[in-house]
C-alpha cells in the first residue's frame, strides 16, 4: 500500500512550477487556517469567557462583577508588570457585590482523582473561612458513582456554607458540624479528592488571600 511508487510525472514537472504550485497550496492552506482562526477565535474566546463567568457566578453566588488576580511573585496582584504573560499564571477571581463589597475569592484547582485529574472551582470567603460554592470543571470519575461529585446536587450543595478545613464523614456519622461534608457512599475516594483539593488550595493560597485582603483594606480605608 505504501510501497514508494515513484511518480511517473516527476521529471515532467519543472522545479519552478513545482515550487510555485506548492507555495500556492501552502499559501492557500495558510490563508484558510488564518481565515478560520480569525472567524472562530472570537467565538471560542467568548464561549470560554462565558463559561468562566458562569462558573464564577455559580460559586460566588452571583457577584455583580469580578476581577481577575494573578499569583505572581508570591502575591496576588491585579496588575502584572509588563512582559509577563498572565495566561500561564495561576488566577484567582475576586467577586464584588453591587455595593462594591467583596464577596469572596473564586479559585480553580486540580489534583489526581480516581481515574485522572479532577479540576474544580470554588468560591471562598476568607474572612469567615466559609466555602461559598463548588463546581467541578473537569473529571473522569466513574459514571454513576464517582461522577456524583459533579452531578449529585445533594453533594455539591453541601459545600455552600461549609467551613474550612473541610472534613469528609460518612452520612450516618454526620453530626451537623459545619466542617463536615457527607461523602458519597461507594465513592469515598472521589469525595475525598474534592475535599482535599479545597483544603490544600486554601492552605496554599490562604496567606496570599490574607495579604491581598489586608492590602485591599489598606487601599480602601482612606
Amino acid at each position: 500500500m505504501t510501497a514508494p511508487a515513484p511518480p511517473p510525472t516527476k521529471m515532467d514537472v519543472p522545479v519552478k512550477r513545482l515550487l510555485v504550485t506548492l507555495a500556492t497550496a501552502g499559501a492557500v492552506a495558510g490563508f484558510l487556517i488564518v481565515f478560520v482562526f480569525g472567524w472562530t477565535q472570537p467565538i471560542i474566546q467568548a464561549y470560554k469567557a462565558e463559561q468562566l463567568r458562569l462558573a464564577v457566578q455559580e460559586v460566588l453566588k452571583a457577584p455583580d462583577r469580578f476581577d481577575t488576580l494573578y499569583v505572581h511573585d508570591g502575591a496576588l496582584t491585579a496588575e502584572l508588570p509588563a512582559g509577563v504573560d498572565g495566561t500561564t499564571l495561576e488566577q484567582v477571581f475576586v467577586g464584588y457585590r453591587e455595593d462594591g463589597e467583596r464577596i469572596g475569592f473564586a479559585v480553580a484547582a486540580g489534583e489526581p482523582g480516581f481515574q485522572d485529574i479532577v479540576r474544580l472551582i470554588f468560591g471562598y470567603d476568607r474572612a469567615s473561612g466559609t466555602v461559598l460554592g463548588m463546581k467541578v470543571l473537569e473529571s473522569k470519575e466513574t459514571p454513576g458513582l464517582g461522577d456524583k461529585i459533579e452531578k449529585d446536587s445533594a453533594f455539591v450543595l453541601q459545600f455552600d456554607g461549609a467551613v474550612t478545613p473541610l472534613l469528609g464523614v460518612k452520612p450516618r456519622d454526620a453530626t451537623g458540624d459545619l466542617h463536615e461534608i457527607d461523602m458519597i457512599t461507594g465513592a469515598t475516594i472521589s469525595s475525598r479528592v474534592v475535599i482535599r483539593i479545597i483544603n490544600n488550595t486554601i492552605e496554599r493560597l490562604g496567606p496570599l488571600l490574607d495579604a491581598y485582603a489586608a492590602s485591599y483594606a489598606a487601599a480602601t480605608v482612606p
Binding site: E111, P112, G113, F114, T142, T188, I189, R196
Partner: peptide, 8 residues
C-alpha cells in the same frame, strides 16, 4: 489500577 497513588 484506578486511583493508584492519588493519596486517599
Amino acid at each position: 489500577f484506578a486511583g493508584l497513588l492519588s493519596a486517599t
